[in-house]
Design a protein around this nucleic acid. Structure first.
Lengths: 209, 209
DNA sequence: GGTCGAAATTGACTTTGGTCAAGTTTATCT
DNA sequence: AGATAAACTTGACCAAAGTCAATTTCGACC
């Protein structure tokens, strides 16, 4: 039983996503109207809203696909690198490059993921989950190798590094960091701080400058 | 020379801000239209746009005032508290309470501050500056007392803690943390991690569970 | 005080995201 | 097959942010 209704549904969703990939890529998210999306997908404007709750949700769905792709690649690239610090930097810089490939696009995405509205909270959670899931194995491995304390929940460790990443991204969007190198350098410093701790080691109390 | 033109300008801006304070407070940011704002201020809709570049910029200006007030209070409250950790927690929880007093309001503000658009980048920088300036003295003091490493730039330390705060706030908006207590607990854990470091102390290598 | 140009003000207008009542299609049951 | 109900589709419609050409106000100079 194919289910004609179900078939059409899937076809519609596919058509919308296809139109989104094309139009978002062509002219960017902001410059793509729902009307254009509907026309390109060959359906009515209202129909889109029976599949997506808002325009931002279409962006989220679009990004979910793209990110899944990128993460797939990442998973195959990362393992060879050395220390935890190096791996994290590699992963985050890859995310950064992806997110900021198109500035306004990435902004909308990050806004929605970091401070989601009720409407898009589910989708944004899914994405962030995906976003974070990729670390867990890296952290697990690091913990096994003794690079990370064992008395800390992995979620907290994730949160910690992800927070630093958010900070760097925000600094870039605010123009306090310029370009990829700056972001890379900042992340490196902050990651190092996070690993070694901000508090001075017990025995050395003096000035280091 | 009074400058009638300049007088009117100031009067208009004041009227807009007054209307904003009243209407945002009354019915929230989202439910206040530019038209309503204009009417309440007794000026035309278009005039507003000669003083503010967008609706969000009005919010930012509004928050700048409010935050300045809160920071003033904070500055008088904080100093008595004990350790750096306690002070930071106090400050951030105060910010948190303010930001989340009205959920959608705080969301819009944080979105604009964390991932600003070109249009509002200046205003958002000013606010974040204000936001961060309040720590510097706390950090300076802590550094003097030997609670913080001296070989780290203060900006980096600020960034570090602020990143963790962003993370907690984001987790609250995403529904991964519920209520004030949860946020407080998470911050406490992450701040402690940041201070002591995520990497195990050299000599103790074993399981702690 | 009269005149002219620059700056400020205005509200009708445009654009666009989102809604909804009316119409159309599909599945189910006899 | 035909009837009926449920699900889906649609585009006219609405609300609200932001634009702009026409108009008014102000200040400077004769």
């Amino acid at each position: 039983m194919a289910g004609l209704r179900e078939q059409k549904k899937q076809k519609n969703i596919a058509a919308i996503m296809e139109a989104a990939i094309f139009l978002f890529g062509e002219r960017g998210y902001e410059n793509t109207t729902i009307a254009a999306l509907a026309e390109a997908a060959g359906i009515g404007k209202g129909t889109i809203y029976s599949y997506f709750k808002s325009k931002n949700e279409i962006l989220l769905a679009f990004c979910e696909e793209e990110l899944a792709c990128m993460h797939q690649e990442l998973r195959q690239t990362v393992p060879q690198a050395g220390s935890l610090e190096e791996k994290l930097l590699l992963i985050f810089m890859c995310e950064f490059r992806y997110i900021t490939k198109n500035k306004s696009f990435g902004r909308t995405l990050m806004r929605e993921i970091t401070f989601p509205r009720l409407l898009t909270i589910e989708k944004s959670k899914e994405i962030e989950e995906q976003f974070i899931q990729i670390f867990v194995s890296v952290f697990q491995e690091a913990q096994d190798k003794g690079e990370l304390r064992r008395d800390i929940e992995l979620t907290m460790t994730c949160g910690h590094f992800y927070g630093l990443y958010l900070m760097a991204l925000s600094a870039w969007y605010s123009g306090r960091l310029h370009g990829e190198e700056d972001v890379h350098a900042s992340l490196q410093i902050m990651f190092n701080q996070a690993l070694t701790g901000l508090r001075p080691k017990d025995k050395e109390d003096g000035e280091s400058t």
